[in-house]
Design a protein around this nucleic acid. Sequence first.
DNA 1: CGACTATATTTTTTT
DNA 2: AATATAGTCG
Length: 629
Amino acid sequence: MIDIEKCNDDHIDDHVDEEIFNCLNLKNLKSFFLFAGAGSGKTRTLVSVLERFRDQNYQQLQLNGQRIAIITFTNAACEEIQRRLDYDPLFSVSTIHSFIWELIREFDKDIREWLDANLNNQIDDLKLQLSKGRKGTKTYVDRVKSLEIKEKRINNLENIKHFTYNPSGLNQSKESLSHSEVISIGAYFLTNKPLMGKILVRKFPILLIDESQDTNKELINAFFEVERKNNNIFSLGLFGDTMQRIYSDGEVNLGNSLPDSWSKPVKKMNHRCPPRVIKLINKIRSTVDGQEQRERTDKNEGFVHMFILHSKTDKRNAEKKVVQRMAEITGDPKWEIVDADYTTLILEHHMAANRLGFIDMFEPLYKNDKLKTGLLDGSLSGLQFFTRIILPIVEADEIGDKLKITNITREYSNLLKFQKGERDQLLRISKARGAVDKLLSLWDDSKDPTCIDILQCVAELNLFEIPDSIFPLSVKEKKEELISEEITADGKSDVLIAWFESLNAPFSQIRAYDSYINDKSRFMTHQGVKGLEFPRVMVIIDDSEARGFLFSYEKLFGVKDKTEADKKNENEGKDTSIDRTRRLFYVTCSRAEESLAIVAYSTEPELVKKHVIQEGWFNESEVEILNVQ
DNA sequence: CGACTATATTTTTTT
DNA sequence: AATATAGTCG
């Protein structure tokens, strides 16, 4: 009897699909806010409702030349939804940035006007700051530079026929808008230019927004405005969970003051996490809004375990130990080091670089603003030289795959680009083979050559073309010249010095970097895992290693007291850094499908232990202070 | 020397 | 957006 009731529990959210489907009636469109927590099957709802909608309305939309827009926060989420909708062109699935860009890109004249006004404001601000600030400091120099750039840009505005959107640190063209400009322009146009709203509604009668709690607040309010003006002919559908708001420009009170006409379905189930994890996240949430998720009846209980270590512990050893303990506790061999399959969540990228061992090549490039984005998305040509040519050759050599080496060489090497009807092809092939062998001899006796060594070797052999960005480093004994360039310190030598420092790292770091950037490693950031799920999750918490200032786990865990700013925010009913950290903690914990390990480095392990037990997050038996050398 | 002020630090988003 | 630290003023 009880079992049957429980089984039905797994389906308590089924009515939600129906409710949303009813909003999407083209004759009388209605907006909705779906409260959908972690693992609530939000994407499944989205997909099944849209498929049903398509079956009934395909022709009419086709006839009107209309589509359904679904906008997501990250590319990962965008791809996932596209895939699950079978890449049907009826659905325009895009990130919020590309969606807004597509909306505004034709309006060059209006963009120019907006930019002119916006740049003028910024220039005024900068001038004010310059007049108040101290001279000769780094910030002063940066401000002067920034002012120059902005003045140049504003003077050049009238020459720009078409604006573009390809902001990457290095080759940012004069025509390009930045990420935040695109969003701000979109919000401004939607609010102040009625035509824009009409175009939007005409093209996309239905607009669904994933992770709406993190959508830029000006923009989300602009969408609300469009919705208000287009009752019944436009449906705005928001999917979100306020507890998972982890970016600072989301609308704080989203969902609190929605018009009565909106449908407000709530999903209660969590289909992802095991009962023990759900108990934990409900508890973490209890002081915020008391919303509780229900567990599935068909899941194993699952595991949560917290390991507390002193901040000065050796982290590699500590985390090895944690993994061993998790294997013992859960009896799950996938926590074992031998065939490990768990995901480690770090707060900031450099924490992954430390753990995967590529910090030496990472840090110099990361510090340089022009190289930072390219480093993180793997698009730097100077690194692709190593990751796409050298690394595959080295890996092919390790398994003795001669054919693969030849293929890579043929694809990239100058030595194997034949003229038509050229003679002596065999000679050149053997020459190229000899050159590759020479290059590979750098790894003889299990040596780990530096990237500079490899670069110079390749240059000497004339084996592969060397990207412009690192070409100056391919000439041997260039070091002194670099240092003299440093003294002149123009922008370009900054970049070159960063490259020089980075490429002094051993090549093995390139392999580690490549695995991280191309998602082959087990590491992800706390903020980057939004919407994702993994069977085994290890959350690394370490304020002392983190550099940012947005989150403070030491405060959340009761080690550090509330600051004046926290008390002030609390009194004014505003978000405090503790609230913010709690939400991030909630997001990371709610990724786990089977077992969850929290690894907290603290200056006061005993205090942390006391606090997390007192909060009711963990039982005594689930918390251990590890002493690792 | 105490009091005050300026500065640096992070995540995600594109073609 | 919050705070530790470095720097400056009286």
